[in-house]
Amino acid sequence: MDTLTPALVMLAFGVLLVTGVRILARAVSVAAPLTDVLPHAGGLPPVEHPVSRFHVRWYVVTMVFLAFDMEMIFMYPWTLVVAQKGPAAVVEMFGFLALLMAGVLYAWREGALRWT
């Protein structure tokens, strides 16, 4: 906990800074906020509300990423013990990574990394 204290102080100070700047801006800004601004896409009035279910073409990438991210959770602690555990730990980790990479290459070949 002791080691975390400076980070928490930093967090508090950061929040304070942002809040302070916003209060300062309220004091010195020329006018109160402009409300109900229509979204700008070139100047013509919008037809629909832009917040829509955004079609994410790269959703497969998120799956690939998730697989690697889980692997990363193992790899961080692994860095601390790999020297003690020796070659076996290296083979296991990089074997696993090779499998994941094979998955990426398969997804690539299938065109999952393309937008259109």
Binding site: A25, V28, S29, V30, A31, P33, L34, T35, V37, H49
Partner: peptide, 12 residues
């Protein structure tokens, strides 16, 4: 930016 006016989007 500090003296500038803030903007709030419609239904934002």
């Amino acid at each position: 930016l500090l003296v500038g006016q803030r903007r709030r989007a419609v239904a934002g």
